[in-house]
Amino acid sequence: MLARIIFFTAVSAATLAVILLATVSPSAQRRLQRSPPSPQLALSMYVQHAHLPSHRVHAGAQSGGALVFHHMLTEGPKNMSRIIGKAQGFIIPLEHFAHSAFNIIYLTFHTAEYSGSISIEAKLLQHRDREELEVVGGTGSFAFARGRAVFTRIGRGHASALAMYHVKLHLQFPDDRSQTIPG
């Protein structure tokens, strides 16, 4: 009987020791702390058509062909606003190509604060005055970016390619952007 009491006491003490060590140890404290949210960034800019004919290219857009564009990114809506980069893309608006991997909009930034590009998936374009699209990656200052891009038409041109758009980017980045891609 005494042996059972000693055995039960030893097992209870060992169990208590394991539980205490699991909750008091520094590694357990790190796991119990809530991880901080991923770094976030919100940007606002305007997409304006370039005033040079060579910057507007339509490859049969009126007949249902591809739309290739090269526009300016500016800080503000005025024509003389500071240029902060460019918006380029290749979109196939045909219904059977609507989910084409080519339907991507690239925003490239060249400023003191940001240098790099953002890739925005344009598969589900509805040709509305407000489009919410998915950010699928980036380079440079925007490496590993994910999030959404909200395009709002604020100018009315003869074609949607001539309209001006206000773009709001809502980006999230991984906690550790030093990740490497295995080669």
Rank of each mutant, 00 (worst) to 15 (best):
G65W: 08
G65M: 09
A66D: 14
A66W: 05
V68R: 04
V68T: 03
V68W: 01
H70F: 07
H70R: 09
H71Y: 05
M72N: 13
L73G: 04
L73W: 05
L73I: 07
L73H: 06
T74V: 01
T74F: 00
E75K: 13
E75Q: 14
E75G: 02
E75W: 01
G76C: 04
G76F: 06
P77T: 09
P77I: 08
K78T: 14
N79Y: 10
N79S: 14
M80V: 08
S81M: 06
I83M: 05
I84Y: 04
I84C: 08
I84D: 05
I84T: 11
G85E: 00
G85S: 00
G85P: 00
G85D: 00
G85R: 00
K86D: 10
K86F: 11
A87S: 12
A87R: 01
A87G: 06
Q88M: 15
Q88D: 12
Q88S: 14
Q88N: 15
G89M: 04
G89P: 08
G89R: 05
I91W: 01
I92T: 15
I92D: 11
I92L: 12
P93W: 00
P93Y: 02
L94K: 11
E95I: 11
H96Q: 13
H96I: 12
H96M: 09
F97S: 08
F97N: 11
A98I: 05
A98F: 07
H99N: 12
H99P: 00
S100W: 13
A101G: 11
A101E: 09
F102T: 15
F102E: 12
F102M: 13
N103W: 03
N103R: 07
I104Y: 10
I105P: 01
I105Y: 00
Y106W: 05
Y106M: 07
L107S: 01
L107Q: 02
T108L: 14
T108F: 13
T108H: 13
F109E: 11
F109N: 06
F109Q: 07
H110F: 09
H110W: 07
T111A: 11
A112L: 15
A112Y: 11
A112V: 15
A112M: 15
E113S: 14
E113G: 04
Y114G: 03
Y114K: 12
Y114V: 07
Y114R: 08
S115M: 15
S115R: 12
S115G: 14
G116P: 01
G116F: 04
S117L: 11
S117K: 10
S117P: 12
I118S: 01
S119F: 03
S119E: 10
I120D: 01
I120E: 00
A122W: 04
A122V: 07
A122K: 03
K123Q: 15
K123M: 14
K123L: 07
L124T: 14
L124G: 04
L125C: 08
Q126T: 15
Q126P: 04
D129C: 03
R130T: 14
E131D: 10
E132K: 14
L133R: 00
L133M: 10
L133E: 04
E134M: 15
E134Q: 13
V135D: 04
V135W: 04
V135R: 02
V136N: 03
G137K: 03
G137N: 07
G138R: 10
T139H: 08
G140T: 05
G140P: 03
G140S: 06
G140N: 06
S141P: 07
S141E: 08
S141H: 06
